[in-house]
Design a binder for these strands. Structure first.
Lengths: 173, 173
DNA sequence: CCAAACTGATTGCATATTGCAAGTGGTTTA
DNA sequence: TAAACCACTTGCAATATGCAATCAGTTTGG
């Protein structure tokens, strides 16, 4: 196994799209970020076993390392469990919310997305930048210790909508 | 050489982010789309030689095939030149503008982007969705034969800003 | 108290993808 | 009519991915 170790930026060019792709342009990095943002997975094992797509452990380990090196995630030891490690979003990671929202919006409009997995994308699309902004504030509370934002939880609303859609499509199946 | 041939969707899951990544999640696909959108490159040779990053011809051929299969680009023979082939954006491809704008915006805020290559991202970021929408209308005119939108050209403005920034940074160098 | 389960990973191996350089068969240009 | 140009393709080496097994230490349950 030879896996990207240093995750040094390759620096093919100073173009912002290129540089973003050098960090995030592969099949798994944004999947990991997605699961942390929308699924609140904070531990290696959760990311490994509770994702739809089934990432393998070596790839997950490599991507977590890469994302930490790129400043998208931070890695901290869990003080109450000597083996547990927590992965959190940094501000840089939280600012991927609009990117993911647009990418999800594009997917839901143009690709064969399932009803239950598309519901969050549709809500984010309808809510637009104001909703993304509220969600990002909530993530700052969950991951960075910022003060808890007032009002209803976007995270909970997204989750509830997903669970309702999943229950519904389970019934009609 | 074994290169992705069929470019069949792998269908790891019906999640919109995952499906988008199955189409676009690699180091080159969005680079190609970027050059077509912002650089108006329409031919294989232009894409091959005039890009900052230096894609190789086999990868370019494969990605163009993939993007055409995915309905992001269309491929047409040039009637005045039996060998020339034109690649154009489809509506699906044009709708990647907000995705690229957000990705570029994230890159310009968080990665070591060069001044001249970052200027377009900054303009798109400031202009926000209204500017993106005008730009998309212009691309519909350029690629889909829609009526030419009134008012100043976003494409030209972006290009002019880039050339000015490039000239400036050449002077101070 | 101790075995079983759980923790974040790592290793070996097979396969798939990427990158580079050269080449293909044809067309257009000077 | 030769040189340049056209969209690719091919061969090969290097790199990345995917799978299954495994690791060493930690915590939990009986």
């Amino acid at each position: 196994m030879v896996v990207r170790q240093g995750s040094t930026l390759q620096l093919r060019s100073g173009c912002p799209i290129n540089l973003s792709l050098e960090v995030l342009g592969d099949r798994w990095s944004l999947i990991v970020v997605r699961d942390i943002i929308f699924g609140d997975r904070r531990h290696f094992r959760e990311l490994l076993t509770q994702s739809e797509e089934g990432i393998s452990s070596n790839i997950l380990a490599d991507r977590l390392r890469t994302l930490v090196d790129a400043g998208v995630l931070s890695r901290t030891d869990d003080p109450r469990h000597k083996q547990k490690v927590s992965y959190s979003l940094t501000e840089r990671g939280i600012q991927l919310v609009p990117v993911l929202a647009q990418l999800a919006g594009w997917g839901v409009r143009h690709l064969p997305v399932s009803d239950e997995l598309g519901i969050r994308a549709r809500i984010l699309d309808e809510g637009g930048p104001p909703l993304w902004s509220r969600f990002m504030d909530e993530l700052r509370w969950m991951h960075l210790g910022s003060p808890r934002p007032a009002g209803p939880s976007v995270f909970d609303d997204l989750q509830a909508a997903y669970l309702a859609a999943a229950a519904k499509s389970a019934r009609t199946r």
